[in-house]
Computed example of a mutant assay.
Amino acid sequence: MARSSGNNWGFPRERGYGSARDAQQVRLCDRHGCNEAGNCPAPKSPNNPERWMFCEKHAGEYNRGWDYFEGLSKEEAAAREKQERSDFSGYKEAAHYGWAGSGDGSRSGDEMRALEILGLEPDSTFEDAKKAWRKIAKETHPDVKPGDEEAAKEFQAGQAAYEVLRVAEELRIWKG
């Protein structure tokens, strides 16, 4: 019987599986002054393959302050979001996992923007949206403020926001 070069004869007698005699290389956390193992990758910048390697503590700290759209104007952020959404548009059931912002993950980015236009919190109900839309409509309707372009734009934005939330609510009820 041929004997392997180690003292285990093909079976790990004195040590567990996967253990080796050689020193293992451990990457340290990239945070200055930290000597913990860096086993959590974090992106250095959007769409960049390079990664920081942090310990769990510093990875959490880094992720709390991460803003994917940092340094972009509102138009650039909207264009980037549209481009990112096109990548997973075929997965309609998972659409709420897009760049929705805050909330519980049950609302799409469009719904979150609609709530923002109506001045509501992310966890507001459809009844709250209805009340907010009625209030905006009473204040900015073209019959109430004839000739006021700003009020007309606000009315149209509120109407579109309410329509987005109404359709989403109908879909939720329908899917049940």
Score class of each variant (00 low, 15 high):
residue 3 R to H: 14
residue 7 N to G: 15
residue 9 W to M: 12
residue 11 F to L: 11
residue 11 F to H: 10
residue 11 F to Y: 14
residue 11 F to C: 08
residue 14 E to K: 15
residue 15 R to P: 00
residue 17 Y to L: 13
residue 17 Y to Q: 14
residue 18 G to N: 09
residue 18 G to K: 06
residue 19 S to V: 11
residue 20 A to W: 06
residue 22 D to M: 12
residue 26 V to R: 10
residue 26 V to P: 04
residue 26 V to Q: 07
residue 28 L to K: 07
residue 30 D to E: 04
residue 30 D to T: 01
residue 31 R to G: 02
residue 33 G to R: 01
residue 34 C to F: 01
residue 37 A to L: 01
residue 39 N to A: 14
residue 39 N to P: 03
residue 41 P to T: 05
residue 42 A to R: 13
residue 43 P to R: 05
residue 48 N to Q: 09
residue 49 P to E: 07
residue 49 P to W: 08
residue 51 R to K: 15
residue 52 W to H: 15
residue 53 M to G: 02
residue 53 M to A: 11
residue 53 M to C: 09
residue 54 F to G: 02
residue 54 F to L: 03
residue 60 G to C: 10
residue 61 E to A: 12
residue 61 E to K: 06
residue 62 Y to V: 06
residue 63 N to S: 12
residue 66 W to L: 13
residue 67 D to E: 12
residue 68 Y to V: 11
residue 70 E to L: 10
residue 70 E to P: 04
residue 70 E to T: 03
residue 70 E to R: 11
residue 74 K to Q: 15
residue 76 E to I: 01
residue 76 E to V: 08
residue 77 A to W: 00
residue 78 A to C: 09
residue 78 A to D: 09
residue 79 A to P: 03
residue 81 E to I: 01
residue 84 E to S: 08
residue 85 R to Y: 05
residue 85 R to P: 04
residue 86 S to H: 06
residue 87 D to F: 15
residue 88 F to N: 13
residue 88 F to L: 12
residue 89 S to H: 13
residue 91 Y to C: 13
residue 92 K to E: 12
residue 93 E to N: 13
residue 96 H to Y: 14
residue 97 Y to T: 10
residue 97 Y to K: 11
residue 99 W to I: 10
residue 99 W to S: 15
residue 103 G to P: 02
residue 105 G to F: 04
residue 105 G to T: 03
residue 106 S to T: 15
residue 106 S to R: 10
residue 109 G to A: 14
residue 109 G to T: 07
residue 110 D to E: 11
residue 110 D to R: 08
residue 113 R to C: 03
residue 113 R to G: 04
residue 114 A to P: 02
residue 114 A to L: 02
residue 115 L to R: 00
residue 115 L to W: 00
residue 115 L to P: 01
residue 119 G to F: 02
residue 120 L to P: 01
residue 120 L to M: 02
residue 121 E to C: 10
residue 122 P to Y: 08
residue 122 P to H: 05
residue 122 P to G: 08
residue 123 D to N: 11
residue 128 D to P: 04
residue 130 K to D: 10
residue 130 K to C: 09
residue 131 K to C: 02
residue 131 K to Q: 11
residue 132 A to Y: 03
residue 132 A to V: 02
residue 134 R to Y: 07
residue 135 K to E: 15
residue 139 E to F: 00
residue 141 H to N: 12
residue 142 P to S: 05
residue 142 P to Y: 03
residue 144 V to A: 08
residue 146 P to I: 06
residue 146 P to N: 06
residue 147 G to F: 04
residue 150 E to D: 14
residue 154 E to D: 07
residue 155 F to S: 00
residue 155 F to A: 00
residue 158 G to W: 00
residue 159 Q to P: 05
residue 161 A to Y: 01
residue 162 Y to H: 06
residue 163 E to D: 14
residue 165 L to V: 00
residue 165 L to W: 00
residue 166 R to W: 06
residue 167 V to K: 08
residue 167 V to S: 07
residue 167 V to R: 04
residue 169 E to G: 00
residue 170 E to G: 12
residue 172 R to T: 05
residue 174 W to F: 12
residue 175 K to T: 06
residue 175 K to L: 10
residue 176 G to Q: 06
